[in-house]
Simulated assay, not measured.
Amino acid sequence: MPISPNQGSSAGGTAVVITGTNLANASAVRFGTNPGTITGNTPTSVNVTSPAGHGAVGVTVTTPGGTSNPLSFFYLEPPTKFSLSQTSGAEAGGNSVTITGANLNGATSVTFGANAATITSNNSGSIVVTVPAGTGSVAVTVVTPGGSTNGLFYQYVVAPTVTDIDPDAGPTAGGTGVTITGTGLTTTNSVTFDGVPASFVVINDTEVSAVTPAGTAGAVDVVVTTTGGSATLAGGFTYVAGPGI
């Protein structure tokens, strides 16, 4: 007399089908000592909704002819989440985030708001996912056979823009203090001139102050990178060679 599925959430509510013979007029299906709710019954099957419970229990069917031998059913505890390896990222998504917690194995879905992430690795203590595209602050929800959990939030960060740099020229020796203006600059983590990192300070969401590194004479690209992505001011700064005598 098989049972399908043979596992479900400790909160109960799992739809279970028990098949066998002489099952007509079933009066009770018990999961351990707890009664399930019979939703359908034929001579060869009983449909039942599991009650709440914990651990491994025996499932028995009672009919006018007696009570069956028990079948094993395993209650799965709901997942819990402790932390996210990253709590923010670009609206375009695509970055990898690790969710740590307990009872996470067998995850069937992870969503960031209404959008499904791609699960790339999963065990009881962690899930690694590729973040989907999205906007704003969203709840991260994990669904496993044991239930679902949320309570952790992920912040999507808008992509930056860079519109101006002042002054826009300076010596090849570097050391020129410049102000870069744009939008979405609060989370700036890198400023480069022709690929060379510059020291910088974030003033506010629309301004970053930087000091040019040494460079080669000519116009170079200025790239500002934030949690939300990168913005390039093509040929935005011109290195000017010093006089020679």
Rank of each mutant, 00 (worst) to 15 (best):
T44G: 14
L84R: 01
L76Q: 09
V211H: 01
P243S: 15
V59K: 00
G89V: 08
S85F: 06
G55N: 02
F200P: 03
A107W: 00
N6P: 04
T192P: 13
N204F: 09
I180F: 03
H54M: 12
G175A: 13
T118F: 00
G13I: 03
D164C: 00
A11E: 14
R30Q: 14
A28F: 09
A52M: 05
Y156D: 08
G174M: 08
V48K: 03
V220Q: 07
P79S: 11
G13K: 03
V240F: 08
S27Q: 14
S121L: 11
G195K: 05
A133W: 02
G106D: 11
G20I: 04
N189M: 14
T118H: 00
P79N: 14
A11K: 09
V202W: 09
L185H: 12
A241L: 15
L152F: 05
N115E: 15
V97Y: 05
F193Y: 10
S4W: 09
G229K: 03
T19P: 05
N115V: 11
T67V: 15
V129S: 02
N105S: 15
P64E: 12
S190W: 08
V48T: 05
T49K: 06
V29F: 04
Y75C: 08
P145A: 10
P2M: 05
T172W: 03
A28N: 15
V223S: 04
V157G: 02
F31A: 10
G228A: 05
S72R: 02
T62Y: 12
T39Q: 06
S27F: 12
G13Y: 06
A56L: 10
V208N: 02
T120I: 13
L71A: 07
S9A: 15
E77S: 07
S83Y: 02
G235W: 04
S10P: 01
Y154E: 10
V157P: 01
P132K: 00
A214K: 06
S109A: 15
T187C: 08
L71V: 03
T232S: 07
T144D: 11
A114D: 14
S4L: 11
S199K: 07
A56Q: 14
G113I: 00
G134C: 07
P70F: 11
F237C: 06
T108V: 12
S88I: 04
V57G: 06
N123R: 09
V202E: 03
T179R: 15
Q86G: 01
G244S: 14
K81I: 12
S88H: 11
S83R: 06
P35N: 14
S190F: 12
G195M: 05
T226M: 10
L185Q: 13
G13D: 06
N69Q: 15
G53K: 06
V191C: 01
G94W: 10
Y154G: 01
V157Y: 01
A198R: 03
P2V: 08
T37C: 00
V59F: 01
I38D: 03
G106M: 13
A198V: 09
S9R: 08
G65F: 12
N150W: 02
T227G: 02
V16R: 00
V178K: 05
T80M: 04
G12M: 07
F237W: 02
T216S: 15
G125W: 05
S85T: 08
T60F: 07
G184Q: 14
L185P: 11
G146L: 04
L84D: 07
F237L: 02
D221V: 03
F237P: 01
